[in-house]
Structures are given as C-alpha cells and as structure tokens.
C-alpha cells in the first residue's frame, strides 16, 4: 500500500518521467530479449507441433499425392472429407471410438476414485500400494497389450482357461466382435485406472480438513459426507482426470494394433487405426489427414463441451 502511494505522485513529476521512460524501454528490451532467447525453443515447438498440425489440415483440404520426391499438394478440395464422412468404416470407427471412450473413462473414473478413497484411508503401506498400482500404468502399452494377447490366447490363454472352467466352453475371446471389444476395454481399464487413482488421491489429500469437521458437527453420516462434501470438492480433480483420459482414449491405437489389427472384420477399428491405415498402408494421405483432423476437432469439441457443462455445474454448486 505505502509503495503505491509514494510511487503514484512520483510518476506525475517532471524529472522522473525520463526515468520512467527508461524503465519502459528497459522492460521492452528485456521482453524482446526474452522472445529472442525463447525463439529457438518456440521454433522447435512450432516445427514439431504446429507445423505438422497445419500441414495435416492443409493435406486434408487438398489433393495429396505422396511421391519419392516428397508430397505433391495441389488445389483446394473438400473431397477428402466427403470420402471420409460417407465411408461406412469411418462411421463405424467413430461410433466405436466414442463408445469405447465413454465406457472406459466412466469405469476408470469410478474405479480410480474408489481406489483413491481406499488409499487415502490406508495407514500403513500406502507407498508400497501406490508403487504397485503404478506398475500397469508405467508399462508401455505395446508391451502390456502383448501380455494381454497371451492372456486372451485362444489355445493357452489364462482368461480362456478361466472362462472354460466357468463353463463358457472354449471361447475365442479376440475372435468375435463383442468379446474382442470387451477384452480391449478391460486391458485399457487395467492400465489406466491407477493413473486416475493417483490423480484423485492427490486431489483428496489436498481437501481441507475443517470442511469434514463441520460436516461431522452437522451430523452428516459417511455416505452423506462423501456425496455432499468429498465429491463436490473433488470435481476439479475428476474433471482433470476425465480430460486426460478422454484425450488419450479417443486416440486409442496401440491396443487394437497389437491385439486385433482392428478385427474381427472391422469391429475394433478405431479412428486412429483407420487414419494410420489410410495414410501409411494405402498411402492415401488426403483422406487419412481428413480422418486425423476430424478426430482432433471432435475430441477438442468434446472436451470444450464437457468443460462448459462442468463449469456451469461448478458455479451452480458454488452459489
């Protein structure tokens, strides 16, 4: 307070004006210098993220031919999008990817929150438990997918053996559409639930203790406290976990790539698999880029929509 009072009249007085200008110049100099120093980093970021994104959008809007001498891009066209939107495989892949994302994220959030609640209450061995929980998450997906491939193996897989002992015959888990989709979801949930649990646990630890004391004084039971205190307070954390997970799940690639190659037939062909196939197997970079661009747009729109709904709900509860 005192400093502003002193500084305010000083700004108006004559001799200090020059000094102020010098300060401004200095600040501008430093700002420019800052830009200069960050330029290499910014250029690298532009080169590895912004340029590919722009390039992909450009490719999706033109006739692209990949040649030994590079990419041949000519003319503006909406054909690629037309091809994509009218393709029944794309339509199926969209439904599959959205469904896959919703189911896995919802299950992961519920399970992850439950695990976090247990971990928070844990008096001893929390560190050990967390370390163990993080093992699935720390495995590279291609490796964990290969492990699941062994588990689902139709001849020797553990899951197949268990199901046949339980009286399901000898199911070919990855060989029929419904069971292949479920099997893939299980592999995803196994891997990423710990990630959600850790995020939610971090949120839980940060919750203020006095709110709980107040709730206890008001006579709220455990169930009520959970729904009316813990859950509302955890909303921002859960929102963060949902965003992370949706962004990842919507781009699911490695699990179907390893487990089913998008099959049986096209049952587990996600948008990412479809785009990859169009680009790198068929060398159709235009339609492939259109798949990539629409996928990115859809997931960004989905996240924005989620945030908006979520934010309005938060402000309602805050009121």
């Amino acid at each position: 307070m005192t400093t502003t009072k002193v500084a305010a009249p000083a700004r108006r007085s004559g001799p200090n004006l020059g000094e102020q200008r010098k300060k401004d110049v200095y600040r501008r100099t430093m700002a420019r210098l800052g830009w200069g120093f960050s330029a290499p980093a910014l250029i690298v970021i532009a080169a590895v993220t912004i340029f590919p994104i722009v390039f992909s959008v450009v490719m999706s809007l033109s006739n692209v031919n990949v040649l030994g001498s590079g990419f041949q891009i000519d003319g503006f066209t909406l054909d690629n999008y037309n091809v994509v939107f009218t393709d029944s495989t794309w339509q199926y892949a969209l439904v599959f990817t959205v469904g896959y994302t919703i189911v896995t994220v919802v299950v992961e959030i519920v399970l992850g929150t439950l695990i976090a609640l247990v971990l928070e209450r844990l008096q001893a061995g929390r560190g050990w438990m967390m370390a163990m929980l993080l093992v699935p998450w720390s495995l590279i997906t291609v490796i964990s997918a290969t492990l699941w491939d062994y588990i689902y193996d139709p001849l020797a897989g553990v899951a197949t053996q268990i199901l046949s002992v339980l009286g399901f015959g000898h199911p070919v888990i990855l060989g029929s559409p419904a069971s292949a989709i479920i099997a893939m979801m299980i592999a995803d949930i196994w891997k990423t639930t710990p990630f959600v649990a850790i995020i939610v646990l971090a949120g839980l630890v940060m919750l203020p203790g006095d709110v709980y004391e107040a709730a206890e004084l008001d006579g709220a039971n455990g169930w009520k406290t959970f729904w009316q205190v813990t859950v509302p307070l955890l909303r921002p954390t859960i929102a963060l976990a949902v965003l992370f997970r949706v962004l990842q799940a919507f781009g699911v690639f490695d699990l179907p790539f390893v487990l089913t190659q998008g099959g049986p037939q096209n049952a587990t062909t996600s948008l990412a698999i479809l785009g990859y196939r169009a680009m790198f197997t068929d060398l159709k970079f235009g339609p492939g880029a259109a798949v990539a661009t629409t996928t990115a747009l859809l997931v960004v729109l989905g996240c924005l929509l989620f945030l908006r709904v979520f934010r309005s709900q938060v402000s309602e509860t805050e009121m």
Partner: peptide
C-alpha cells in the same frame, strides 16, 4: 541488447537451418 539480439537471431537461424 544488440549483442544479445544478434545472438538470439543467430541461434534462431541456426535452428531453422538445422531443421
């Protein structure tokens, strides 16, 4: 400032060249 700006621009150009 001039020296640093030159350095910064040089670095930027070098980066672009490498890329």
């Amino acid at each position: 400032r001039r020296t640093l700006r030159v350095t910064a621009i040089a670095t930027a150009i070098a980066t672009v060249a490498v890329l």
